[in-house]
Simulated scan of single mutants.
Amino acid sequence: MSIMDEVNGRFGRGMLEIAALGLRQTWQMQLKWRSPRYTTCWNELPVASC
């Protein structure tokens, strides 16, 4: 923290920030695509392909 304070003092307030401060969740999971048994039925798990 002292290094962050030193860098911010030298280069201006807000030059360095904790990474979690910039997180803003702008999306929400679409629950309509989730299976009602998403934790118990292996056949209903979504499959990701690349």
Rank of each mutant, 00 (worst) to 15 (best):
E44Y: 02
F11I: 00
Q28C: 07
I3A: 12
P36N: 14
S35Y: 09
G22P: 02
N43E: 14
Y38I: 01
I3R: 05
R10Y: 00
E6T: 07
L31R: 09
F11W: 01
M4T: 03
L16D: 04
Q28Y: 05
K32P: 04
S2W: 04
G14W: 00
T40R: 05
T40M: 03
W33R: 13
Q28I: 14
Y38L: 06
G12M: 15
E17T: 15
C50T: 11
L21Q: 09
T40C: 04
S35Q: 04
P36I: 08
I18P: 01
M4K: 02
A48L: 15
T40Q: 05
R24S: 02
L31D: 10
P36S: 14
D5M: 08
C50I: 11
V7Q: 04
A48K: 12
K32M: 03
R10Q: 06
Y38P: 00
R10L: 06
G22K: 12
G12F: 08
G22A: 13
L45N: 07
S35W: 01
W27E: 12
C41K: 05
W27V: 15
M1L: 08
C50F: 14
G12R: 12
P46V: 01
P36M: 08
C41P: 00
C41N: 10
W42N: 14
M4W: 01
I3E: 11
V7D: 01
W27H: 12
R24Q: 03
E17S: 13
Q28T: 13
A20L: 11
V47R: 01
E44S: 08
A20Q: 07
I18W: 00
A20T: 15
Q30K: 15
D5N: 14
E44G: 07
R10W: 06
A19Q: 15
I18F: 02
N43Y: 06
L21I: 01
R37Y: 09
Q25N: 13
S35P: 03
L21F: 06
Q28S: 08
Q28H: 09
T39V: 03
E17W: 06
M1P: 10
C50W: 11
L23R: 02
I3G: 02
R34N: 10
G9L: 05
E17G: 12
W42K: 10
M15V: 05
F11H: 01
R34E: 10
A20M: 12
E17Y: 09
M15K: 04
M15W: 00
S35D: 11
D5Y: 06
I3F: 05
A19S: 15
L45I: 12
Q30T: 13
G14C: 00
Q25V: 15
P36L: 08
D5R: 12
M1K: 10
W33F: 12
P46I: 05
M4V: 07
W27T: 12
A48D: 06
R10F: 04
D5T: 09
S49V: 15
R24H: 05
P46W: 03
L45M: 15
G9F: 10
R37P: 06
W42F: 11
